[in-house]
Design a protein around this nucleic acid. Structure first.
Length: 271
DNA sequence: CCAAGCACCTGACGGC
DNA sequence: TGCCGTCAGGTGCTTG
């Protein structure tokens, strides 16, 4: 489900509504295949106060008192929602009951996602984050262009590679490539400097716009309050194979790059 | 080190 | 209606 904009929107929403609340109890837990076992994770939580909720790459981080950080990776279908207490449903994975009677819930239909706990020290040592590249909204487009052009793979797969730049997934890779007029199969190292810079300028624009519009909802994504985003209404190419290009009216096509469907306009996007 | 391909799950949708 | 194949906002592991 969530790429950078969606996780960012969730983090901001949770930060605004849940900071200062203390965990009273774990109301429900289905930790099957959840990376950290129930015996080690659950007893750590009651009594801790939520201090800060933020995002790094596509990971949602919940900083709690007593030097504990919960890391949620939502993968394709994970949700973290803060709202009124309710009964567990089929795909709910973890319920944290808070001291104002509200509920912080994690659900994940496909079970790809996970929760792990860290101290501030072990979080820094976590291989996943250590292997992550820079944040696209914190680094100049010129610097990202230089990183990209060191790779020989298709530009689309380089955009998806979290070791190069974090936060970009299939939606925003396709949308940024369209805006920059670049064919997804173009070899990254063959892109000229100016086209690579343009690509990251467009990427930054599309990520900021998506955050402002509350993220993109295809089927599963909802924000911290359980509401859908609106940016899917602004897509130019993602999921639009066979439709007309908004710019030139040519029929949009799709190819597989790095195993992912990549939709593009063959007239507007050149190798 | 880099790149490619499949595995991990469940559900929705289209074709027959 | 129902069965079957395909596809889905991501990453991890294996192989070359």
């Amino acid at each position: 489900m969530p790429e950078l904009p969606e996780v960012e929107v969730i983090a901001r929403g949770l930060h605004a509504s849940a900071v200062g609340r203390t965990v009273e109890s774990v109301g429900h837990a289905d930790l099957t295949r959840l990376s950290e076992s129930a015996e080690t994770l659950l007893p750590k939580l009651p009594g801790r106060t939520i201090l800060r909720i933020y995002r790094r790459a596509k990971v949602l981080l919940v900083e709690m008192s007593g030097d504990l950080v919960l890391a949620f990776h939502l993968k394709m279908t994970g949700r973290v929602v803060h709202g009124p207490k309710r009964e567990p449903k089929r795909h709910d994975r973890l319920f944290l009951l808070l001291d104002d009677g509200s509920l912080l819930s994690f659900a994940d239909m496909r079970k790809f996602g996970y929760v792990r706990s860290f101290t501030s020290k072990t979080l820094l040592e976590w291989d996943f984050l250590r292997n992550c590249g820079p944040e696209p909204l914190e680094v100049p487009a010129v610097d990202m262009a230089q990183r990209l052009r060191k790779r020989k793979a298709a530009v689309k797969s380089v955009l998806l590679n979290q070791a190069v730049i974090v936060g970009v997934g299939n939606i925003y890779a396709d949308e940024a490539l369209f805006r920059a007029g670049i064919h997804p199969e173009t070899k990254a190292h063959l892109l000229g400097h100016s086209r690579a810079v343009r690509l990251f300028q467009e990427l930054q624009t599309v990520l900021r716009q998506a955050i402002a519009e509350n993220g993109s909802s295809i089927r599963d994504y909802v924000n911290a309050a359980g509401d859908a985003g609106a940016f899917q209404n602004s897509f130019n190419v993602y999921g639009k194979k066979g439709e007309r290009c908004r710019v030139c009216s040519h029929t949009l096509e799709a190819v597989k790059v790095a195993g992912r469907t990549s939709t593009f306009c063959p007239k507007c996007q050149r190798k």
